[in-house]
Amino acid sequence: MRKAITAVVAAVAIGIPVADATAAARKVVTVTKTVTGTQAQASRWGYVQVTLVVKKTTTTVGTKKTVVRKLTAVRVPVYPNHTDRSVYINQQALPWLKQETLAAQLKGNVQLISGATDTSYAFNQSLQAALLAAKKV
């Protein structure tokens, strides 16, 4: 099962060399592409497929062309449809997610707050946002 997953990811990873982007830009072209790995059998669990979103930046200076590919998203559109799939996904999906620790952030010039609806509190938030913006008028 692990072998199959590694194969898919490794195959896709090979296509993403890290290039030097320090050269002064003359002409810069950025293309975002979605690439999909082949479906791989994950033992008795079923199939897994990985999709990657790659941002490709081509910088041309004279005749020298530099290509930088940056991985911007990883998806798992096909995953094993098995009753124990949550266990399986627990093991497999976590590495794709960025993990941080909850902490209050500097608010800076926050204009809007996204949060669950709590009537009185949300109203205060909206009001606060309005007041903040009003200061800048």
């Binding site: 209050a104 707050i113 996204s114 949060g115």
Partner: peptide, 28 residues
């Protein structure tokens, strides 16, 4: 912004995600 769910257009918006434990704070 409809009670904390919102749409922005046109660029230059700074949005705070409500900190789930501390009311006056943002988590992101």
């Amino acid at each position: 912004n409809a009670g904390g769910d919102l749409v922005v257009r046109g660029g230059g918006w700074t949005i705070g995600i409500q900190h789930p434990l501390e009311r006056g704070e943002v988590a992101k």
